[in-house]
C-alpha cells in the first residue's frame, strides 16, 4: 500500500514536472511573441525602423490597421512580402494583431530636418491645412483630424511617417494600385493631386513635430466632408 502511494506521489510529481517543463519550453503566450514576424520591418513596438518605406504601426486606430491587414491578406493591397505573411491567418487573429499595435504607444520619432525647399514646404502646408477648393482637394485635416492624429475607427494619423513612405502611398492611391472599400475617398482625393503636390504634402507632413496628445480622436468627433468606405457612419 505504502509502495503504491509513494509510486502514485512520484507519478503525480513527475506529471507536475512535465507540465512545468512544457510551459518553460513554450514561447510566451503573448501577442508580442506572436507578432515577432512583424518587428524587423515595423519595430518591436510598431514604432517603425530605419527603413524609410516601412511605416509606423503603433497607436494607429485598430480599425485602420485591421482594414490594412485584411487588404494585404486578400491581395487588394499589393506588397508581396505582406501578402505572403498574412495569406492564411484567420480574420479574428488579424483583429487581435491590429488591436495589439493600436495599443502600443512608443513616442513619435524626433523630426529630422527636411531637405525640401521653403516653397515646397509652404505648398505642402497650404494643401494640408486648407486644401485647394478650386481643384476640389479637401484639407488633410478635414478627415485626418485638426492635429492630424486620425480618428477611430478607420482613419489613420499622418504623423511619425517618413516622406518616402507618404509619397509612395499617395502615388499608389493616384495610380490605383492602392485601393480601399467603396466609396474610396482617398483614391478620389489622391487622383486630384499632381506629383508636385504629393512631394510637398509628404515633405510638410514629415516635418511636423508631435502634438501633446498623439491618440486618434474618438469615433464621430467630427463629420467627414464626404462618404468614405473605410469610415462607416
Amino acid at each position: 500500500m505504502f509502495a503504491r502511494t509513494t509510486a502514485l506521489a512520484i507519478a503525480t510529481l513527475a506529471a507536475f514536472d512535465d507540465a512545468a517543463a512544457q510551459t518553460v519550453n513554450q514561447p510566451p503566450d503573448t501577442m508580442a511573441a506572436r507578432v515577432e514576424a512583424c518587428t524587423p520591418c515595423h519595430g518591436n513596438q510598431g514604432e517603425g525602423t530605419s527603413d524609410v518605406y516601412f511605416p509606423r504601426l503603433a497607436g494607429k486606430p485598430a480599425g485602420y490597421l485591421y482594414n490594412q491587414l485584411l487588404a494585404f491578406k486578400n491581395g487588394r493591397r499589393k506588397y508581396p512580402p505582406m501578402n505572403y505573411l498574412l495569406e492564411f491567418l484567420p480574420d479574428p487573429y488579424l483583429q487581435q494583431m491590429a488591436d495589439y499595435f493600436a495599443d502600443q504607444h512608443p513616442p513619435l520619432p524626433p523630426v529630422t530636418a527636411s531637405d525640401a525647399s521653403k516653397e515646397v514646404l509652404q505648398h505642402g502646408q497650404s494643401l494640408v491645412s486648407r486644401g485647394d477648393p478650386q481643384r476640389q482637394i479637401p484639407a488633410c485635416g478635414s478627415c485626418h483630424g485638426p492635429t492630424l492624429t486620425g480618428m477611430e475607427p478607420g482613419i489613420p494619423g499622418l504623423l511619425g511617417l517618413r516622406p518616402s513612405y507618404i509619397s509612395a502611398q499617395l502615388g499608389a492611391w493616384r495610380y490605383g494600385t492602392r485601393t480601399a472599400k467603396a466609396p474610396d475617398c482617398m483614391q478620389q482625393v489622391a487622383a486630384r493631386l499632381t506629383e508636385e503636390d504629393v512631394t510637398a504634402v509628404a515633405a510638410w507632413l514629415a516635418s511636423r513635430p508631435a502634438p501633446v496628445n498623439i491618440a486618434p480622436a474618438p469615433k464621430g468627433t467630427y463629420v467627414l466632408p464626404f462618404a468614405c468606405g473605410s469610415e462607416p457612419d
Binding site: R34, V35, E36, A37, T39, P40, C41, P81, L85, Q96
Partner: peptide
Amino acid sequence: PMPYGMPPFAG
C-alpha cells in the same frame, strides 16, 4: 488559431 510567425530576414 493564433500561430507564431518567423520574421523575414531578406532585408
